[in-house]
């Protein structure tokens, strides 16, 4: 290898301003994306105590809400809403299906509570067989385009259940299946008393 002669004096032009702005802008952008990404992983998309953004759930035939083929969350103000995410391929969901249905039959006559079953990434055929199999009667529908689950949880793992109070504020999050009817009651009753 040869040695080079020392570099001859060059113009003292530093990094041009536009290049500096570009570099720092890129870096800042990268850090912001990483930071927000990290914050989203660490925090749930929606927190207890916050208002739930509005959504519309299309409903399966035979599982309408008061005869309607779709239901909007904002139309349910004044009532306590239980949103349950499930799927026919989800084994743990099966263990809570009977308790949820029992709770629905308990609270439906009061007219103060609405249960919404959201069928998360499922096929209609299998979803409907599941509803038939567990004799479920409350309103149920598919989460078209996974838009509703995206409101509640980025990394949805079924089953998950969200309790929304009469003012549309999220009050309780249950990850995983309910162990008993009593557990559901213990969450719902205080919400009804408010």
């Amino acid at each position: 290898m040869t040695d080079h002669p020392p570099a001859s004096p060059v113009s003292r032009r530093s990094v041009p301003l536009w290049a500096q702005i570009l570099v720092w802008g890129f870096l800042l952008g990268l850090l912001v994306v990483l930071g927000i990404g990290l914050a989203r992983v660490q925090r749930p998309v929606i927190a207890v105590g916050r208002a739930v953004p509005d959504f519309t759930l299309p409903l399966y035939e035979g599982y309408e809400y008061e005869g309607l083929r779709q239901v909007r969350l904002s139309d349910l103000r004044g009532r306590v809403v239980l949103v349950n995410f499930w799927a026919s391929w989800c084994k743990p969901c099966e263990s809570e299906a009977a308790d949820l249905e029992a709770a629905w039959r308990l609270y439906q006559p009061t007219g103060q509570v609405v249960f919404l079953g959201v069928d998360y990434v499922d096929t209609p055929l299998e979803g409907l067989s599941y509803l038939v199999k567990f004799d479920i009667t409350y309103p149920n529908g598919p989460d078209m385009g996974s838009r509703i689950s995206a409101i509640f949880n980025r990394e949805m793992g079924v089953p998950e259940t969200y309790f929304i109070d009469r003012q549309g504020i999220l009050r309780y999050i249950k990850i995983g299946p309910f162990a008993s009817l009593a557990e559901i009651q213990a969450i719902l009753d205080p919400l009804l008393e408010r």
Binding site: V33, I36, G37, V45, G145, S146, A150
Partner: peptide, 10 residues
């Protein structure tokens, strides 16, 4: 990642 942050869709 950016798309999801902006639109909340994957």
């Amino acid at each position: 990642l950016v798309y999801e942050i902006v639109t909340n869709q994957k």
